[in-house]
């Protein structure tokens, strides 16, 4: 069901992760993802996976919710892992069904598949956790502040941030609307599932046209409502929530930096071969 999409969803809470300064949360997420991509061996990868899991535990968001989000990318995950098995032929051959074929499964293929899969899972955990634990308004506020140096180049950072806030606010509304329009057109005999690519594209017209028309109407009404609430558009506003860096923010930053250092060190320095995964085999 289209309504099951959880991208950009926010689960209100009072955990440490929820309470982190959203600016720091964005920086931490970027740092952690960078570390993740620098990982070259299982030692650093497992370290990052552990960090991700600790984040999830600290956020007190149930694993069920997280897994539901992961379900959406399961196909991509399996596909990528499969390709890794296919493209890697180093190491010991584990299975080579037909002698004349190129296809064979090797230890290195299997390990790199696991490696990639774990990396994607950790990546998803870290990035979804950012939106799961930060309200869209705070998130866009934080982005606005982090990008505020760009004002020097006459970029309207505030307008961009407001656009993002509104976009995030309307995603669920639009998803619901698509659902209703689709059902209504199906009730008039619309066939969205069969036919050639061309036919299917054409079948989308009865859904996209009302969606656009309704969105313009919504935008128009929203503009009136924002004006009625004294919105000026110049960015001169106070904020309900102040962002203040606190001890926990720096503590988390320190941990993230240590991880980054670990990732760099273990991938660059020869650790006597022990941690590098080719040697583990």
């Amino acid at each position: 069901m289209i309504r099951d999409i959880t991208i950009g969803q926010y689960f209100p809470g009072t955990s440490v992760i929820h309470k982190l300064d959203p600016r720091m949360k964005i920086i931490l997420t970027v740092l952690n993802i960078a570390s993740l991509f620098l990982c070259r061996n299982f030692f650093s990868l497992l370290l990052m996976l552990a960090i991700s899991v600790v984040w999830v535990l600290l956020s007190r968001i149930s694993f069920k919710t997280i897994l539901k989000g992961l379900k959406m990318i399961l196909v991509i995950l399996l596909f990528t892992a499969f390709l890794q098995i296919f493209y890697n032929d180093g190491g010991t051959v584990l299975w080579h069904p037909v002698e004349s074929w190129d296809f064979k499964i090797t230890t290195e293929g299997v390990f790199s598949a696991i490696f990639i899969a774990v990396r994607i899972v950790a990546l998803i955990l870290l990035s979804t956790l950012l939106t799961y634990t930060t309200s869209p308004t705070l998130l866009t506020d934080a982005i606005e502040r982090l990008l505020s140096p760009l004002k020097v180049f006459h970029i309207k950072v505030h307008s961009l941030a407001m656009m993002m806030t509104i976009a995030l606010r309307f995603i669920p509304t639009l998803i619901e609307e698509i659902d209703i329009i689709m059902s209504a057109q199906k009730a008039r005999g619309a066939d969205l599932e069969t036919g050639s690519l061309m036919q299917r594209a054409k079948a989308l017209v009865p859904i996209l046209v009302p969606l656009f028309v309704n969105s313009f109407r919504r935008a128009y009404e929203l503009a009136f409502a924002m004006e009625a609430r004294c919105y000026g558009g110049d960015g001169k506003r106070t904020r309900l929530r102040v962002m203040k860096l606190q001890g926990r923010d720096f503590a988390m930053l320190a941990i993230a930096l240590v991880c980054l250092a670990a990732a760099i060190v273990t991938s660059v320095v020869d650790m006597g071969g022990f941690f590098l995964f080719e040697k583990v085999i």
Partner: peptide, 26 residues
Amino acid sequence: NPDNQIVASIVEEDVAFGPENLCVEQ
């Protein structure tokens, strides 16, 4: 239309929108 006049995703953030625009002190 209740859907088309709510600006923020969270209740209290939406209620704060007006006074924020009026630059009411934090």
